[in-house]
Design a protein around this nucleic acid. Structure first.
Lengths: 394, 394
DNA sequence: TTGTTTTTGTTCTGCTAGAGAATTAAATGC
DNA sequence: GCATTTAATTCTCTAGCAGAACAAAAACAA
């Protein structure tokens, strides 16, 4: 099968719109994308010819006029697999172009499993998930992979003092060789943020900060609809922002990082005397019944998160602070404590910054990996640039 | 006079290249910009016809081949004025398209002067500086204005709890009406950063953080060659990043902001007992002769600057941390203390981040305002996008 | 001296993306 | 039945480039 996007901006824009907004008519697409109807029409028809898009029902609008015919992405046109490497699991999902998840899979592994074991598990998941969804591999377009450590800009290898055994593992090469498919490797926090952009709570949001509160604390920064990667791919390490230079030591080698206050292990450890054998599910249920010691500790987490978030708001003035990871299950009571903590350390301009919880839960990374496999963020700016053309003219 | 840039990317790119790199041959321009020689040739010739570019000398290269003919921006083609509102001064500069500063001016005012007085002084400077440079106003293309407080996204009005008397002043409207010219208003720290991008130490740097250490502490964040403005224009307020939630109170209403440690007034106040009547020049000369109390205080400033910079590096992984404002006169001994403080709170990926001092000194803002007036950063990405075309194809 | 090579700059052709106008299609309202 | 409205198509046209071919001006090589 040899279809594919042309270099055209239009095709990409239309696909992204159809992904995010569902079936639309050609006229609606033209309005949303800012292209002329003629351009959209010819482009869509070309995509129909290539089997990328299918025509749907005619819809009757309330107003008069010819009824619009909906077009949508062809489910059979292509699928992609996302893989998420966690600290003790590998997770996978497969979805088609039309936004629909066709299957998921998960393998539990020993904590601190070896890279070899992880890659084997990932490969098994890919094969499993394709078969399970009743698909052949012929329309599998690519594989996106999330890993829990910084990636270099090429995305092929990883180097980190934080997860030494994973240093320099060429996941990209190994999986690409195994499946003869394009494989894209990215930091999993960044993928989680992309997941929320493409499928979740950050749809349409162009400037936001994603904060993943999990075993490790990670994040991503989005400016103008693009994820900031930094000069060596190391942007978004919000978990290692130092909040107290005399605080507890962190696995990154510094002191007082957000992670030593808001990472799951640190939080559980504080509670282990009062609640022996506490784990994450227990913590969450104790929080729901307002156990005083748990509430106290979570309140302190909210303080620290707010403090770090305030720093980010002052520097980036984002529209939204989106919280993901397991602690996002703490819900609105937690946010209600983060907001004042944030306001307490940020300038008044940031009072309007929304603080919300991601809608994809623990699937955020894997869904982001799917989106990455679809290359959905080569150029995620919808529609046309609203920037006036630069001109010296007066 | 009705010349102007066409909507073409090419013309803008070529102008920016000629601005930043000086006179170049058509072939060099083609290589730098990534366009074909034919395109560059025809575009340049069109610009010559419109008087925007002039041909220069033929240069003999060491290699054989036809000698190249240099082209450069026509000095007579256009000038722009930059205005910088400081806490107790208004400064102006005028420059032509070819990068040359044709004149400067400065007016001292009372501290906390009224907006009316400031705007009057600015208007006088514009008239003065044009005349002083022996120019007429016919080729004045626009005016860029820097103000020391956050600006909203339209750039026309200002609102800030920090400088209440300047809230809601419509500088843009008033100056534009007075001179019947395009007037662009921006936060002066951001303009200073732009100044360093266009004329100074950040030329060619696409990801960096600018930190202005002055009476107020401000800054700017650049991602992919563009200044981050945030959703309400409030990005870059690095001076109000909170380093200690129990620290001294700041004019912004919060505690422990970088400004309360690294702003000039705060630093002078700490030294006033030991050195009665100390001011900035005295502080700088005492630092040069290594006065112990001054060195100690400046060392603490470096610690705090490094701490804030570390946060920024962890979140943005920039290529460069550029320091401007009066304290940049502290020079290399100061940087030598900032660097370890930064390393102490940032992950190992950021060890390579350069820390340098801006080359424009106190003229950074006003030069940035000139660049803004020229619209030099409508689309400052030089050359072509290196991003692969997004494609589902395999 | 006379080619040969090398680089610069010009000219011409041609392609691609997309806009815009005109046209057709299919509904509703009067 | 007819005007109106919205949707979709078709056709033409333009801008913005690339690329090939070519001309110009130098150095080098015999």
């Amino acid at each position: 099968m040899a279809f594919g996007f042309r270099s055209s901006d239009v095709e990409h824009t239309l696909v992204v719109l159809l992904q995010r907004l569902g079936p639309l008519s050609r006229a609606e697409l033209a309005r949303e994308a800012g292209f002329s109807r003629s351009t959209v029409s010819t482009t869509i028809n070309g995509m129909i010819d290539r089997g990328l898009v299918v025509e749907g029902a005619h819809i009757r609008t309330e107003v008069r006029g010819r009824p619009a015919q909906l077009v949508s992405l062809a489910p059979s046109a292509g699928t992609a697999v996302g893989i998420d490497f966690g600290f003790r699991h590998v997770r996978g999902a497969i979805a088609d172009l039309s936004h629909k998840v066709l299957g998921t899979a998960e393998v539990e592994l020993d904590i601190d499993y070896s890279p070899d074991a992880g890659i084997e598990a990932a490969a098994a998941i890919v094969e499993d998930i394709v078969e399970q969804a009743g698909l052949s591999r012929t329309n599998l377009l690519g594989i996106g992979v999330g890993i829990p450590c910084p990636t270099d800009l090429s995305g092929t290898t990883t180097r980190s003092a934080m997860i030494p055994t994973w240093s320099g593992i060429r996941i990209q090469e190994r999986l690409a060789a195994r499946f003869a498919l394009p494989v894209h490797v990215e930091n999993e926090s960044r993928l989680a943020a992309w997941g929320e952009v493409v499928w979740g709570a950050a749809r349409g949001v162009r400037n936001f900060v994603y904060l993943k509160l999990h075993s490790g604390v990670g994040g991503a920064v989005f400016v103008n609809g693009q994820c900031v990667s930094g000069c060596r791919g190391g942007a978004g390490e919000i978990g290692h922002v130092s909040l107290d230079t005399r605080g507890p030591i962190c696995r990154c080698g510094n002191r007082g990082c957000l992670e030593v206050y808001a990472g799951i292990p640190a939080v559980l450890q504080q509670l282990t005397q009062v609640h022996p054998g506490i784990n994450l599910p227990k913590l969450l249920s104790l929080y729901r019944v307002e156990d005083p010691s748990v509430c106290r500790v979570i309140s302190e987490v909210a303080q620290k998160v707010g403090q770090a978030a305030g720093m980010l708001c002052n520097t980036l003035n984002p529209e939204l602070l989106l919280i993901g990871g397991s602690f996002s299950a703490l819900g609105e009571p937690f946010l209600a404590q983060v907001r004042p903590a944030l306001d307490n350390v940020s300038i008044d301009l940031n009072r309007g910054t929304r603080v919300e919880i991601g809608t994809l839960g623990r699937n955020a990374s894997v869904m982001g990996a799917v989106a990455r496999a679809f290359q959905l963020f080569g150029n995620s700016s919808l529609g046309r640039s609203t920037q006036p053309t630069p001109a010296f003219a007066r």
